[in-house]
């Protein structure tokens, strides 16, 4: 029997310690009150159940049944007129007192609102990370960008940003030749840059081919003559002319911002917009991260 109690409590201990080991491996922060209360709750479940269970097991071994029998008897089953176990009765009372506290003070009936609590949570969050966000170094931005990317963008662009074999933009390459040609041929208007729409037909035939090749190549080598037309808007270096047109050279903040705000439809397909989903720091972080993915 004793071995049974030991086994029971050992199980409770193993369970709690096992949980602790696993969540620590996942870098869970137990100082977060919700995490802490949950963990304490888990300990209470294991300890109380196995502890109290073991107590009654022990009584099976050591105690004997006694008491005054009721006169009734059902199919041979009798019934004692024993008093309530005191521990049970007091605990019952205890939970009722707790209930009153919870209902009127813990989550006060007239004052508590879960949306109010949410607003408070957001406020505390902003306060906590304000400093880090204000002075984020490029390295920090890249790391931030990566974690946002993995949560929000990876399902389409792939965990490495490879675009999942053509299902979305492959970030290791700003453009393929086809993409550039398509824009030259059709123009494009969605991203909402200060310069407005890109008109269709800015270059024709051989010129278009040459420019597309140049742009797809990452603007390396000598620019074809037709590039001057493009440079008028995109800048000679193709970096987007101070944010008035998209950068063709690489991913920078204005481009990422405009894509997030407006979505993008091109020959690969359609990307939904993420309006209001990211803070300015997070947008910066995403741009920084996408910048590192290039080649």
């Amino acid at each position: 029997m004793n071995s049974f109690i030991v086994k029971g409590l050992a199980l409770a201990g193993v369970l709690v310690i096992g949980t602790l080991v696993v969540i620590k491996q996942m870098h869970i922060d137990l100082s977060d009150p919700i995490n802490m209360i949950t963990f304490l709750g888990a300990i209470a479940i294991a300890a109380l159940t196995f502890g109290v269970g073991a107590k009654y097991m022990a009584q099976m071994k050591s105690d004997t049944a006694s008491g005054e029998l009721a006169e009734e008897n059902w199919d041979g089953i009798g019934e004692y007129k024993n008093e309530l176990p005191a521990g049970w009765a007091y605990s019952f009372l205890g939970t009722m007192i707790w209930a009153v506290w919870y209902f009127f003070w813990g989550y006060p009936l007239n004052a508590y609102s879960e949306i109010g609590e949410y607003n408070q949570e957001v406020k505390n969050y902003n306060k906590k990370f304000e400093a880090i966000h204000k002075n984020a170094s490029p390295e920090v931005l890249k790391e931030m960008g990566e974690s946002i990317f993995l949560v929000q963008c990876a399902p389409c662009h792939g965990e490495t940003g490879d675009g999942l074999s053509g299902k979305a933009q492959d970030f290791s390459k700003r453009f393929t030749k086809e993409q550039v040609l398509a824009v030259i041929k059709n123009g494009q208007h969605k991203l909402n840059f200060p310069l407005g729409a890109m008109p269709a037909g800015m270059a024709q035939g051989k010129d278009a081919q040459a420019v597309a090749k140049y742009v797809a190549n990452g603007l390396k080598g000598t620019a074809p003559t037709a590039w001057t037309t493009c440079a008028g808007c995109h800048g000679t270096d193709g970096k987007g002319n101070g944010g008035t047109a998209p950068s063709l050279a690489g991913y920078n903040l204005p481009l990422v911002k405009h894509v997030l705000a407006n979505g993008k439809t091109g020959i690969i397909g359609h990307m939904p917009a993420f309006p209001g989903r990211f803070t300015p720091v997070q947008e910066k972080a995403l741009a920084a991260y996408l910048g590192t993915l290039k080649q």
Binding site: M26, H27, I132, E143
Partner: peptide, 27 residues
């Protein structure tokens, strides 16, 4: 025991943020 550990771990991972305040884990 397996579901207890799995559930607590998953629930806490959904909430977890990294040192910069971004969600630590993708779904």
């Amino acid at each position: 025991t397996s579901m207890w550990i799995a559930g607590i771990t998953q629930g806490m991972m959904w909430r977890a943020v990294d040192e910069y305040g971004n969600l630590m884990y993708s779904f």
